[in-house]
Write a protein that binds this DNA or RNA. Structure first.
Length: 574
RNA sequence: CGGAAUGUAGCGCAGUUUGGUAGCGCGCUCGCCUUGGGAGCGAGAGGUCCAGGGUUCGAAUCCCUGCAUUCCGACCA
């Protein structure tokens, strides 16, 4: 393609709406433009990248035996009522009415539609298992879209759904998808890590893994063992509980009875640590939650935080939120900051495993301006309900190998695979007839990839001070051909010949035929970041051009023939 | 949803405190010059100053309301 006529508006300055690197780069390099918050127009260059990613995903999915189809973005509300998600999904679901006032949604995902389709079309065990997918635009009315394509309200996603007669069959397809996802993320050139994850709103009963691209701006924290291959999302990572059993079984009897201490206006653990001069881990931090409209007091160690997802799972709860100040006073009789597990009535009590491992500590007294010291778990408050309800912290022992230490990394979730089970097939009544002519509920899996988000993720990982460094596999063009001076007939002639010849080889070439100064062209070229640059300059008359690799900066002067060989070798992989 | 900031030319910003009729840099157009790392000189085009209401002889500037964008937090795939 000739750059002169292409919509490729590069920017010298960064629009102020962009904060993170990938967002800045995609605006500066002319890949996208924002329409409204979280919604973008893909310009020609950006669209080419998107299509390349899409095609890699498509090729690998097809290779795995999945079949592509395409469902509508617009979906009738009835289906969402059937699964209950019309009510459960919340304000992220974009709802609208047609001219007859019928309710519709813009699909944030397609479990309902696909399950309903398969229910109608697949009735026999002979047709199963089956795995279908689409690459389709999705809508989620995010509370806070941010970071460009990283978290948009409109985004491109590959979503696949598999249907099975047995859990064994589901497991096979799941493993196949796990492999396929690894292949996809390797091909697009990302450093990533599959991690154990929480099923969240999509639900499901079986395994699920997220494919996390490692990047500082990632919105998720992932816990990785420095010794074995354990890796999990922080919200899912299990706290190793070895210290618990021992300590919990034998409460310290040495300690004197607990006593009240005056702690005026000392509400936070930090304040207590500095006032009392004790370590944070000797405090019993007590928080009051409202779980499905009932109060639940939760005790964790002072240096730990509550993991709300674990708590939610523990109660199999629909809703969970921190109690407000009024509720806290009503239930505990004390203002926020002074509540503790000792003598607490009117509420359920859940104690974290690590708390059960503490011999003696300090807790709130359920009275304004007072705490209790010499509090012994099991003696002074019940250890009836002990569970893992905290976030792991760095340095924790690995729950898998029990040897390594947990380290934290930030990750961008670019893929997620689930063993769903029957969460959608039951309400939609998707069944098949088995060998005995008996109706059975289909067992499902689902598998998503954030196609547009991958573009952001690649930019986060693959750039330098001068701009983007595209991996060859998803570069919008493979070669940037730059005649330095388009008023020099020799340069133009040489460049045109090379342009034609490379294209005949099936190589994608962007030729900068603009009447710009060399400096401008080079700066733009570095910014756009195509893998190979060929400069046709003063030595064009002698048949010499400059060949430069964007990633390494390696550059050499070659004859036209050598350059041609070098390019085809590099790009076509010979 | 809570907190904060911002909104003036395509992009980045000044002007707002102290009201007086719109500026700078980059980009864009034309001419000259220049052609290997965002050159130089000259001449131009381009603005509902986010919107609506109010105060005033007069509002980008003061007041009220709303909207948008961004950041932090909460929430959530």
């Amino acid at each position: 393609m000739r750059q002169n006529r292409m919509i490729l508006p590069t920017l010298r300055e960064v629009p102020k709406e962009a904060e993170v690197t990938s967002h800045k780069l995609m605006l500066r390099a002319g890949l996208v433009r924002q329409l409204v918050a979280g919604v973008y127009t893909y310009l020609p260059l950006g669209l080419r990248v998107l299509k390349k990613i899409e095609n890699i995903v498509r090729e690998e999915m097809n290779k795995s035996g999945a079949q592509e189809l395409q469902m509508s973005v617009l979906q009738p509300a009835e289906l969402w009522h059937e699964t209950g998600r019309w009510d459960d999904y919340g304000p992220e679901l974009v709802r609208l009415k047609d001219r007859h006032s019928r309710d519709f949604v813009l699909g944030p995902t397609h479990e309902e539609v696909i399950t309903s389709l398969i229910k109608q079309e697949i009735n026999s065990y002979k047709k199963l298992p089956i795995n279908v997918y689409q690459i389709q635009t999705k809508f989620r009315d995010e509370r806070r879209p941010r970071f460009g394509l990283m978290r948009g309200r409109e985004f491109l996603m590959k979503d696949a759904y598999s249907f099975h007669t047995s859990y064994e069959s589901l497991s096979e397809t799941y493993d196949e998808m796990y492999k396929t996802y690894n292949a996809i993320f390797n091909r697009v050139g990302l450093k990533f890590r599959p991690v154990q994850a929480n099923a969240g709103a999509i639900g499901g009963s079986g395994r699920n893994h997220e494919f996390m691209v490692l990047a500082d701006v990632g919105e998720d924290t992932i816990a990785i063992c420095d010794h074995c291959d354990y890796a999990a999302n922080l919200e899912q990572a299990e706290a190793h509980g070895a210290e618990v059993a021992a300590a919990g079984a034998a409460p310290s009897t040495e300690a004197p009875a607990f006593e009240k201490i005056h702690t005026p206006n000392t509400k936070t653990i930090d304040q207590l640590v500095s006032t009392l001069g004790l370590e944070a881990q000797t405090f019993f931090k007590t928080l009051l939650y409202v779980v499905d409209d009932k109060p639940v007091a939760v005790v964790v160690r002072g240096d730990h935080e509550v993991n709300e997802l674990k708590l939610k799972d523990l109660f199999d709860a629909k809703t969970l939120e921190l109690a407000d100040d009024a509720t806290i006073e009503r239930v505990t009789g004390a203002p926020t900051g002074f509540i503790g597990p000792v003598g607490l009535k009117n509420t359920a009590l859940v104690v974290d495993k690590a708390v059960a491992g503490v011999q003696v500590g300090v807790a709130g007294a359920n009275e304004r301006d007072y705490h209790l010291q010499n509090v012994v778990p099991g003696r002074d408050f019940a250890l009836e309900r002990v569970a893992d309800i905290r976030n792991v912290v760095e340095g924790d022992t690995c729950p898998s190998c029990k040897e390594g230490k947990i380290e934290f990394y930030r990750g961008i979730e670019c893929g997620h695979i689930f063993e769903l089970g029957t969460k959608y097939s039951v309400p939609i009544n998707a069944t098949f007839l088995d060998e005995n002519q008996k109706a059975q509920t289909m067992i499902m899996g689902c598998y998503g990839i954030g196609v547009s988000r991958i573009m952001s993720a690649v930019l986060e990982q693959s750039h330098d001070d001068n701009g983007i460094v595209w991996p060859l596999s998803i570069a919008p063009f493979q070669v940037h051909l730059i005649p330095v001076n388009v008023k020099d007939e020799t340069q133009v002639k040489v460049a045109e010949q090379l342009y034609t010849r490379l294209q005949q080889q099936g190589i994608e070439v962007l030729m900068d035929d603009r009447d710009e100064r060399a400096g401008v062209k080079f700066k733009d070229s570095d910014l756009i970041g195509l893998p190979v640059r060929v400069t046709v300059g003063k030595m064009a008359g002698d048949g010499i051009v400059e060949f430069k690799v964007r990633q390494t900066g390696e550059s050499k002067e070659l004859t036209l023939e050598q350059a041609f060989e070098e390019i085809t070798g590099l790009v076509l992989g010979q």
